[in-house]
């Protein structure tokens, strides 16, 4: 009881520690400004929602959401206008599916090799080299798809148009190999060695350990990597705008020109569509759909990792 009273006052014979008000104020101001800078991310997200939301709302006040989602024709730039996003959506999913068809097997095999078989030296060379693929600007890939890959594929694929989803998808797949490889490899590296040693102890070969122990244990990370890669492919713009064409056709034929959601936004941006017109508003409606699509995939991927991660002691 007495102790409590004694510590309340200053110790005898000492100056009490005085607060420096000016300094405190300055410290608080600095913290406030820094906090504001950190909030820029929230402002950006809000900005995206507002920018897309306002003009998309204007668009949907003139076109019904049902038509937008179910109509099978997309012709906002023609005289008979129809606003069905399905052709853009199928084109987006078609090019993305082709890209994943390339990137998932190649990226996964590369990850298994790097994580379970490669020597340290080989890994130190191969990993940064693969990262270069992710650093090449997408406009360069677009050029490559249109000018090199399409003419090359014409030797094997009859009826391949100048613009097609096949070569755009393949090149996009090459581009996202490093994404899948490095995220999957991280997941495999996180698998504890005790699991590997347990399997070795039972007489499994290295490949059996890799395929039957490490990959299943790292599956949540691998699935998350694939979803992130899908989201990247759906949002990728320049490759498809250059090489897949700008013809909104409802088709799953990979040989003919199509138009993805991103390519449509590019197409309208290239022309001189008057500001505020309905066709100008379409890019925000398409943009909002694209944002929702990629955003939900990213959130799902993060959720998936957290939900299904195997926790090892």
């Amino acid at each position: 009881m007495n102790d409590g009273q004694r510590t309340a006052g200053p110790l005898p014979g000492r100056q009490p520690f005085r607060r420096n008000r000016a300094r405190d104020l300055r410290e608080r101001a600095v913290a406030g400004v820094l906090g504001l800078a950190a909030a820029i991310g929230i402002f950006t997200t809000l900005g995206i929602v507002v920018a897309l939301g306002v003009d998309a709302a204007k668009f949907f006040s003139q076109v019904s959401v049902i038509d937008f989602l179910t109509d099978t024709k997309w012709t906002p730039l023609f005289s008979i206008k129809e606003y069905g996003i399905l052709p853009l959506l199928t084109a987006t999913l078609l090019t993305s599916a082709i890209a994943l068809g390339i990137a998932v097997p190649l990226g996964l095999l590369a990850a298994i090799y790097l994580s379970e078989f490669a020597s340290r030296r080989a890994r130190d060379v191969i990993k940064p080299a693969l990262e270069i693929l992710a650093g090449v600007p997408t406009v360069v890939y677009g050029f490559f798809a249109l000018v090199v890959v399409t003419p090359f594929l014409r030797n094997f694929v009859p009826g391949l148009s100048t613009f097609n989803s096949l070569s755009a998808g393949i090149v996009m797949g090459i581009m996202i190999i490093p994404l899948i490889a490095s995220l999957s490899e991280d997941a495999m590296n996180a698998v504890p060695n005790a699991l590997r040693e347990g399997a070795f102890g039972l007489g499994a070969t290295r490949a059996e350990v890799a395929v039957q122990v490490v990959v299943p244990a790292a599956l949540s990370g691998i699935v998350a990597a694939v979803i992130l890669a899908l989201s990247r492919a759906v949002g990728e713009t320049m490759i498809v705008a250059i090489a897949a064409g700008m013809n909104p056709t409802l088709t799953l034929d990979p040989r003919v020109p199509v138009e993805t959601m991103t390519a449509y936004i590019v197409q309208v941006s290239l022309g001189d569509t008057p500001y505020g017109s309905l066709s100008y508003l379409t890019i925000f409606a398409v943009g909002a759909a694209l944002f929702l699509l990629t955003f939900s995939m990213n959130v799902f991927s993060h959720w998936f990792v957290r939900r299904y991660r195997e926790v090892y002691e």
Partner: peptide, 16 residues
Amino acid sequence: NLAGVPSIIYGLLGLT
């Protein structure tokens, strides 16, 4: 999440 937003969406943000 912002790191995963397609770059073309930033273009629409800037445009507006």
